[in-house]
Design a protein around this nucleic acid. Structure first.
Lengths: 254, 254
DNA sequence: CGGCCAGTTGAGTTCCTTCAACACTAGTGG
DNA sequence: CCACTAGTGTTGAAGGAACTCAACTGGCCG
């Protein structure tokens, strides 16, 4: 147990490497040196307690942050206290790669569970690299930025044009896909370590209605939930029913 | 009249230059050479008819596009025909700067009115430049990308956590601000060349409810509308009432 | 003139929210 | 050991926000 935890702490880049591998579709022989480049950056992990601010929450537009483990969220809070979660921050995510992009004043990143994060300043430098040197990594980081924007677009569509019932399915499918890409979960089942209040603020619904909607999905036999474990019973029909487009498809791989 | 139109066609970079000038907050002496750099790119404008696909709609992930005049939109269409507009494309916008970013398969860019656009491939190249050469332009382009993401985040919050009444005000304020930054409008009034159906698909509302909501704003004396002309009567109280955060604030200026 | 499109208005319905109460679990201190 | 508390999940009932259906207006153009 402790060994496993230490391993995660010492290798916060692993989820990122897996996502790059899964999404960037590099020819063989490219990924190995890239992994070495990543390892050579010598990123040092630190752990963050639950419910605290990450980059962008306080202080000046901070350094970019690589997530090694745990769940976080980017959120915006209205003057009267209403909260909207823009999206979850999962292992393999890099928030604030571009000094002008993520740690904006209007949207804060917070940890939901305990997290393992690393200062990703070296990554940012690489991300700015010209197509010449370290091109594969720069390209991969741009693909990740593209994925982030794609997720945000998806969020807009869900909130604007889909019913409560149609919003939950894609969210679960998205979370499962992202966690699988990062290599921290596999199969049709994943751990959902957040309360229904968090889900409600993500889905743009009230807590009560979020609860009822999830139960409807359970009654319909599309998901099974025990504790924090979510199992997608029939991912394909769930995807069809709720108009889900996989990340891989969105990024043009298909 | 014709002279003015020709001028726009021959200088599609003007709105972009103005936006950079307004948002990037360069010290004096930086903007002049930057304008010359932009002019030196020799971008050639062409006009696009209304209601046609722009980059990303069809064909392979196309070249990036600079908008010189007219209104467009980025949208996503669900399987059953429901449409969600992610955001408007206005003069000074660059769509698809990053080959991995805008022209995604899942989201198409379309023209709403007649537009003047230019192939912005040279801009893309510059955007990838290292901090060394052409640094100000690269920085400015990244700031624009940041603004784009900020707008998308705003859209999420509006759709997720604000009422119909609260959604319209910020949209009008945002449009006015963007048009002013690009230098194509000034003051508290602007031309809104789109139907209420388009607004509805932007706001995530039905046409009927969009109509009623706008009329409520008129009755409350917050906006005046004659034809396609929208006038914000009391921008400040409208902003306060609907929790609007100006772009300049979001980007950390002020 | 007639047709079409955008805007407007009324009436009824549906979806979602709010308020309230209650069950369950875990943690805390007497 | 057990009350006590707080947080989360769950359920019922009532109200409100937004949708759908339908009709009608006015402008514009062939």
């Amino acid at each position: 147990m402790i060994a496993a935890r230490d391993e995660t702490l010492s290798a916060p880049i692993e989820p990122l490497a897996r996502r790059i591998e899964a999404l960037a579709a590099f020819p063989s022989g490219v990924m190995e040196p890239l992994r070495e480049t990543l390892a050579g950056l010598g990123l040092r992990a630190r752990s963050a307690p639950p419910r605290t601010g990450l980059a962008g929450a306080e202080g000046p537009a901070g350094a970019p942050l690589l997530v090694g483990a745990g769940w976080g969220a980017r959120q915006r809070i209205l003057a009267d206290g209403r909260r909207q979660i823009l999206g979850f921050v999962l292992p393999g995510d890099v928030i604030g790669v571009d000094p002008h992009r993520a740690p904006l004043r209007y949207a804060a990143a917070v940890s939901l569970t305990a997290m393992v994060v690393a200062d990703a300043e070296p990554l940012r430098t690489m991300g700015l690299a010209l197509p010449s040197r370290d091109a594969p990594l720069a390209r991969a980081l741009r693909a990740l930025a593209a994925a982030e924007e794609a997720l945000l677009s998806h969020q807009v569509t869900r909130l604007g044009r889909q019913t409560a019932y149609e919003r939950v399915g894609p969210l679960f499918l998205e979370l499962r896909e992202r966690l699988c890409l990062a290599g921290v979960e596999k199969g049709d089942s994943f751990t959902l370590p957040v309360t229904q209040e968090i889900l409600a603020d993500t889905l743009g619904l009230s807590i009560v209605h979020t609860n009822r909607t999830i139960q409807q999905l359970r009654r319909d036999g599309l998901v099974r939930i025990t504790g924090t474990q979510v199992t997608l019973v029939e991912p394909k029909s769930l995807a069809g029913l709720t108009d889900y487009v996989p990340l891989a498809t969105m990024l043009g791989r298909s």
